[in-house]
Each structure stands twice: as structure tokens, then as C-alpha cells.
């Protein structure tokens, strides 16, 4: 309780250090000096760095285990099928990095070059960065509080040598806390195209996802759309569909209507997706015709369209 007063006005507000609740706060003097209001110089540095990155997409969900990393990995792989598109996949789930395993890069290490940290490449046009590459053993736990996690994210954005990139996909941990605030803040000047929000059909997940949508609105992050994952399960034996995570409250569709955000599509629950992720294989290559592959492809196409539209709008603004 002594750490932050209950009604902290925020370090960047005009009331910083002067409010009644600031009395007794250990940071009072620092806040009152106005130092908290000066923006982090890293934001400008990141803006410079991100000039070579055309589109930036965040993959978010309030709920854990709904398939953020799986989706991020498939989005990256799907976009990278076009050899002329350069993709960067950044995993900012500091405490539970899953991307190295899903991309089949476990045990890889990050190298340092003159121009920064080099990402680990799956293909020539698909680079990956994750805290998982910095750990010496799969048992290593990153037991960090917020500030250290934020520092790591800053380094990932500022110090990684991505090169010329068409799409930067950022995979996030569940929640609406340090990692999310930091990535949005650090990329504020560089401009984020938008967020893709992942959910599963059941209410326990939707209620967290509604919070995430409110988070996006609070921080003024555009929402590209919602993806409903694990939507229906087709029994491999009898081919009949069941709802493992039943949409008892109308699923993502109703939520999207209520909150006026687009539903990008539904991805069925296919046990092969999980198996491929465990092995680090590409699901697209192994099962090119499955309903899940088709669903992914159509969603990826919609995301591409969103980004292109976005870009042309911006170019119009600049030229006019």
C-alpha cells in the first residue's frame, strides 16, 4: 500500500506530486519535479528504428491459453508464404514464451551484430525474437516484476536488428498490465496498425476479452478484429462437430455485435494444430486443405486488407 497511493494522479499528469493522495508517497518529489512527465527518450529511438517496419500488429487477449501464440505463429507463417514479404515475429510474453517451441526454434540463441541483436530466422523472410532464446535451459523461470519486463520489451523494440520488414507481429501475454501498456507506449510514436484479439467461444473467456477491448479503447489502439479460436471440434472418428467450449452467451459473434468490432473469423479446434505446435511444424504445410487452414487463410487475408487500406489512407493524408 505504501508503494502507490490509491488515487495516484499519474506521473505524467499536471497534478503529479501535488495531489492530496501524493502525500507520503516515496515518489512524490520525483513526480513534482516534472521528471515523470518527460517522455522516455526510447520512444523516439524506437520510432527511428521502426521506420523500416511497414505494419505493426499486436495479438492480444485478456484470457490465457486461447491461442494467441498459435495465432501469431500462423499469421506470421501465412504472411511469409509470399517470399517478397518480410515478416518479424516478436514474443513479449516474458514469463511464458511459447513462440520458440511453436516455431520449432527451441534451443536457438540470439546473436549480436554491429547493428543490434539479430533475430532467429525460420525462413529467409521470417525472423523471430523471444525471451526464450535468452534462457539457458527450458526450466529457467523469468521471475521479474513489471519494470524489468518493460526494460526487456524496450530492448526488443529498440535493439533488435529487424531490417526492412513488411509486418511486425507482436505476441503478448494474457491480461492488461505492464507488457501491454509498455508495448503500446513504446510504439506510440511509431504508430501501430491495430490489434487482433483472440478469444474462445465460452463466456469465461469472453468476459476477459471484453476487458481487453476496453483496454484498447482506453489506450486508443485500433482494433483490426476478433478471432474466435477453438470454435467447434470435429471428431476425427465420426466427423461430427461438438462444442467443447460452448458459446453459451452467443460466442464472439454476439460480443462483436455488442461492442461494434469486426469478427475476422472462426478457427475450429483441430488436435493437429496443437500437435504441430508441439513439434514446431507448419500446420499449413502438413494439412493444406483442413478447415482450420482455410479459416486461418481467410483471416490472414482480412488482416492484410485492413493494413493495406490503412496504409493507403495514410498516404492520402500525407500527399493531400
Amino acid at each position: 500500500m505504501e508503494e502507490v497511493p490509491h488515487d495516484c494522479p499519474g506521473a505524467d499528469s499536471a497534478q503529479a506530486g501535488r495531489g492530496a493522495s501524493c502525500q507520503g508517497c516515496p515518489n512524490q518529489r520525483l513526480c513534482a519535479s516534472g521528471a515523470g512527465a518527460t517522455p522516455d527518450p526510447a520512444i523516439e529511438e524506437i520510432k527511428e528504428k521502426m521506420k523500416t517496419v511497414k505494419h505493426k500488429i499486436l495479438v492480444l487477449s485478456g484470457k490465457g491459453g486461447v491461442g494467441k501464440s498459435t495465432f501469431s505463429a500462423h499469421l506470421a507463417r501465412g504472411l511469409a508464404e509470399d517470399e517478397n514479404t518480410q515478416i518479424a515475429l516478436l514474443d513479449i510474453d516474458i514469463c511464458g514464451p511459447s513462440i520458440p517451441k511453436i516455431m520449432g526454434l527451441e534451443g536457438e540463441q540470439v546473436h549480436q551484430s554491429g547493428s543490434g541483436w539479430s533475430p532467429v530466422y525460420v525462413e529467409d523472410n521470417l525472423g523471430v525474437m523471444s525471451v526464450g532464446f535468452l534462457l539457458s535451459s527450458p526450466d529457467d523461470a523469468v521471475i521479474w516484476r513489471g519494470p524489468k519486463k518493460n526494460g526487456m520489451i524496450k530492448q526488443f523494440l529498440r535493439d533488435v536488428d529487424w531490417g526492412e520488414v513488411d509486418y511486425l507481429i507482436v505476441d503478448t501475454p494474457p491480461g492488461t498490465s505492464d507488457e501491454h501498456l509498455s508495448v503500446v507506449q513504446y510504439l506510440a510514436a511509431a504508430h501501430i496498425d491495430g490489434a487482433v484479439i483472440i478469444t474462445t467461444p465460452q463466456e469465461v473467456s469472453l468476459q476477459d476479452v471484453r476487458k481487453e477491448i476496453n483496454f484498447c479503447r482506453k489506450v486508443k489502439l485500433p482494433i483490426i478484429g476478433v478471432v474466435e479460436n477453438m470454435s467447434g471440434f470435429i471428431c476425427p472418428k465420426c466427423k461430427k462437430e461438438s462444442q467443447i467450449f460452448p458459446p453459451t452467451t452467443g460466442g464472439a459473434e454476439l460480443m462483436c455485435q455488442d461492442l461494434e468490432v469486426p469478427l475476422l473469423g472462426r478457427v475450429p479446434l483441430d488436435p493437429l494444430i496443437g500437435k504441430n505446435c508441439d513439434k514446431g511444424h507448419s500446420f499449413f504445410i502438413d494439412t493444406p486443405d483442413s478447415p482450420a487452414t482455410l479459416a486461418y487463410r481467410s483471416i490472414i487475408q482480412r488482416i492484410q486488407e485492413f493494413c493495406n487500406l490503412h496504409q493507403s489512407k495514410e498516404e492520402n493524408l500525407i500527399s493531400s
Partner: peptide
């Protein structure tokens, strides 16, 4: 409101848990 997002960084979360 049930859909309200708790957008808190670490120290605020720690304080509530202690409480």
C-alpha cells in the same frame, strides 16, 4: 462495471494483493 479493464502496472497490483 463487469467489463471494466483493470489496467494496472505491478506496484498497484501488489498493493491490492497485500490488502
Amino acid at each position: 462495471k463487469p467489463d471494466e479493464a483493470v489496467v494496472w502496472r505491478g506496484p498497484k497490483k501488489n498493493a491490492l494483493i497485500k490488502q
